[in-house]
Protein backbone atom coordinates (compact mmCIF):
# COMPACT_ATOMS: atom_id res chain seq x y z
CA UNK A 1 0.00 0.00 0.00
CA UNK A 2 1.33 3.38 -0.96
CA UNK A 3 0.37 6.73 0.31
CA UNK A 4 1.03 9.46 -2.18
CA UNK A 5 0.43 12.94 -0.97
CA UNK A 6 2.37 15.96 -2.03
CA UNK A 7 3.00 17.96 1.08
CA UNK A 8 -0.69 18.15 1.71
CA UNK A 9 -2.22 15.79 4.22
CA UNK A 10 -5.75 16.54 3.10
CA UNK A 11 -5.48 15.08 -0.37
CA UNK A 12 -4.15 11.62 -0.94
CA UNK A 13 -4.38 8.56 -3.12
CA UNK A 14 -4.15 5.18 -1.48
CA UNK A 15 -3.13 2.23 -3.53
CA UNK A 16 -4.57 -0.97 -2.12
CA UNK A 17 -3.04 -4.14 -3.45
CA UNK A 18 -4.88 -7.45 -3.71
CA UNK A 19 -8.19 -5.61 -3.59
CA UNK A 20 -10.89 -4.89 -6.13
CA UNK A 21 -14.39 -3.41 -6.45
CA UNK A 22 -15.53 -5.48 -3.49
CA UNK A 23 -13.72 -3.37 -0.93
CA UNK A 24 -13.22 -0.18 -2.93
CA UNK A 25 -16.87 0.34 -3.76
CA UNK A 26 -17.95 -0.35 -0.18
CA UNK A 27 -15.28 2.04 1.08
CA UNK A 28 -16.33 4.70 -1.38
CA UNK A 29 -19.81 4.45 0.11
CA UNK A 30 -18.69 4.92 3.70
CA UNK A 31 -16.28 7.69 2.68
CA UNK A 32 -19.01 9.51 0.81
CA UNK A 33 -21.21 9.28 3.87
CA UNK A 34 -18.59 11.02 5.99
CA UNK A 35 -19.17 14.79 6.04
CA UNK A 36 -15.41 15.39 6.27
CA UNK A 37 -14.84 13.88 2.84
CA UNK A 38 -14.93 16.53 0.15
CA UNK A 39 -14.29 14.09 -2.63
CA UNK A 40 -13.64 10.41 -2.95
CA UNK A 41 -13.53 7.92 -5.73
CA UNK A 42 -11.64 4.87 -6.85
CA UNK A 43 -10.18 3.44 -9.99
CA UNK A 44 -8.63 0.19 -11.10
CA UNK A 45 -5.65 1.18 -13.25
CA UNK A 46 -5.43 -2.12 -15.07
CA UNK A 47 -7.77 -5.09 -14.93
CA UNK A 48 -5.01 -7.67 -14.83
CA UNK A 49 -3.28 -6.07 -11.89
CA UNK A 50 -4.85 -6.67 -8.46
CA UNK A 51 -4.79 -3.08 -7.31
CA UNK A 52 -7.20 -0.21 -6.71
CA UNK A 53 -6.44 3.44 -6.19
CA UNK A 54 -8.67 5.21 -3.70
CA UNK A 55 -8.62 8.99 -3.87
CA UNK A 56 -9.64 10.93 -0.78
CA UNK A 57 -9.86 14.71 -0.42
CA UNK A 58 -11.04 16.11 2.87
CA UNK A 59 -12.23 19.38 4.33
CA UNK A 60 -9.22 19.63 6.63
CA UNK A 61 -8.55 16.41 8.43
CA UNK A 62 -5.69 14.20 7.16
CA UNK A 63 -7.03 11.95 4.41
CA UNK A 64 -5.41 8.96 6.07
CA UNK A 65 -7.51 9.43 9.21
CA UNK A 66 -10.73 9.81 7.25
CA UNK A 67 -10.02 6.64 5.31
CA UNK A 68 -9.22 4.82 8.52
CA UNK A 69 -12.52 5.97 10.01
CA UNK A 70 -14.35 4.86 6.89
CA UNK A 71 -12.87 1.39 7.32
CA UNK A 72 -13.86 1.45 10.94
CA UNK A 73 -17.43 2.40 10.00
CA UNK A 74 -17.60 -0.36 7.44
CA UNK A 75 -16.36 -2.83 10.00
CA UNK A 76 -18.96 -1.77 12.53
CA UNK A 77 -21.66 -2.05 9.88
CA UNK A 78 -20.48 -5.55 9.08
CA UNK A 79 -20.65 -6.48 12.73
CA UNK A 80 -24.22 -5.19 12.92
CA UNK A 81 -25.11 -7.15 9.79
CA UNK A 82 -23.58 -10.30 11.20
CA UNK A 83 -25.32 -10.14 14.56
CA UNK A 84 -28.68 -9.23 12.99
CA UNK A 85 -28.32 -12.03 10.46
CA UNK A 86 -27.35 -14.62 13.05
CA UNK A 87 -30.31 -13.64 15.17
CA UNK A 88 -32.71 -13.84 12.22
CA UNK A 89 -31.40 -17.30 11.31
CA UNK A 90 -31.68 -18.51 14.90
CA UNK A 91 -35.26 -17.19 15.06
CA UNK A 92 -36.13 -18.90 11.81
CA UNK A 93 -34.68 -22.20 12.97
CA UNK A 94 -36.70 -22.03 16.17
CA UNK A 95 -40.04 -21.43 14.44
CA UNK A 96 -39.85 -21.69 10.67
Amino acid sequence: MEHTSFGDQRNATFSLTEEDHTLANALRFTLNQDPRALFCGYSIPHPSEARVNVRVQTTGEPAREVLKDACQDLMLMCQTVRSTFDKAVADFKKNP
Partner: peptide
Protein backbone atom coordinates in the same frame (compact mmCIF):
# COMPACT_ATOMS: atom_id res chain seq x y z
CA UNK B 1 -22.96 -15.58 4.55
CA UNK B 2 -21.50 -15.02 8.02
CA UNK B 3 -18.09 -16.04 6.72
CA UNK B 4 -18.46 -13.58 3.83
CA UNK B 5 -19.22 -10.74 6.25
CA UNK B 6 -16.19 -11.73 8.30
CA UNK B 7 -14.00 -11.55 5.21
CA UNK B 8 -15.13 -7.99 4.53
CA UNK B 9 -14.32 -7.14 8.14
CA UNK B 10 -10.85 -8.64 7.71
CA UNK B 11 -10.29 -6.54 4.61
CA UNK B 12 -11.10 -3.37 6.55
CA UNK B 13 -8.86 -4.45 9.37
CA UNK B 14 -6.02 -4.98 6.96
CA UNK B 15 -6.39 -1.49 5.54
CA UNK B 16 -6.56 0.03 9.01
CA UNK B 17 -3.43 -1.76 10.18
CA UNK B 18 -1.62 -0.82 6.97
CA UNK B 19 -2.52 2.83 7.51
CA UNK B 20 -1.49 2.91 11.16
Amino acid sequence: FTEAVKILEDKCERVISDLS
